[in-house]
Amino acid sequence: MKSRIALIVYILFILLPIYWLLNMSFKTNQEILGAITFWPQNFTFENYQKILTDPSWYKGYINSMIYVSLNMVISLTVALPAAYAFSRYKFVGDKHLFFWLLSNKMAPPAVFVLPFFQLYSSVGLFDTHIAVALAHCLFNIPLAVWILEGFMSSVPKEIDETAYIDGYSFPRFFAKIFIPLIGSGIGVTAFFLFMFSWIELLLARTLTATEAQPIQVIMTRTVGASGIDWGVLAAAGVLTIIPGIFVIYFVRNHIAKGFALGRT
C-alpha cells in the first residue's frame, strides 16, 4: 500500500507541470495574467484555433514529423545490418569502430553547429527535411546500433545456422526470419529514435530557415514586441507533447515485455 502511494505521488509530480501548461492553453491571456485559477474559468479554444488555422504555425508540426520519420527510416535501415554484424562476427577494428560510433553520441551538438551549417549549405541541402534527418543520424544511428545489438545477441546463433542449412540466402533469412524475431527490439529502438530526434533543438534550428523549420523553433516567436502570448505558447507546447503520447502508446507492450540489453 505504501508503495502505491509513493508511485502515485511520483506520477503527480510528473503530471503537475504538464497539467499547468494544459490549463493555461485553455485560458485567455487576460485570465492567465490575472489571479491564479486552478482550472480555466472562461474555457476557450482560441489559442488552438490560432495555431491550427495558420499554415506558418501548423507547418512546423508537419516539418518536425517529416524529418523525424525520415530519420527513423534511415537509421533503422542502416543500423539493422550493422548491428547484426556486431552481434555475430569478429572483424578487424570491430571494438574500436563500436566505440567510435558511440563517441558521436558524445560530441556536444554545440561543437558541430557551425561546420554543419556550412557542410549542408555547400552540398545544397540547407533548409531541407533531409538535412535535419541526416544530421540527427549522427547520434541516432549509434544509438540504434547499440540497442539493436543487445536484442540480436539474445537470439541464439543456432537459428541463423539452421536457416542457412535450409538454403536461405542472407537477405531472405534476415527479412523473413530474423527481423520478426527481434520485433520488440525494433519497436523499442524506434521509440528512442523518435524521442531523441523529436526533442532535439540546436541542430534542427541551425539547419533550417523557413521551409523545414520545426515547431519548437517556430514557438519562440510568441515572444513579440507586446510581450509574450502565453496562451498560444502553452497551446503550442501541449501540441508538441501529443505525437509522443501516440508513440509511447504503440510501443508500451514491447517495453512491458521486458528486455535486458547487453553486449557479451
Binding site: 506520477i11 507541470p17 504538464i18 526533442i199 515547431i215 502565453w230 508538441t240 503520447i245 509511447i248
Partner: peptide, 21 residues
Amino acid sequence: LVLIALPLLIPLNVVGTIWQI
C-alpha cells in the same frame, strides 16, 4: 508507462518553457 514516459517526449526547449511558466 505512458504517464511516466511523458516528459521524455517533450522537446527540450518546451521542457524549459514548462518549468519557466
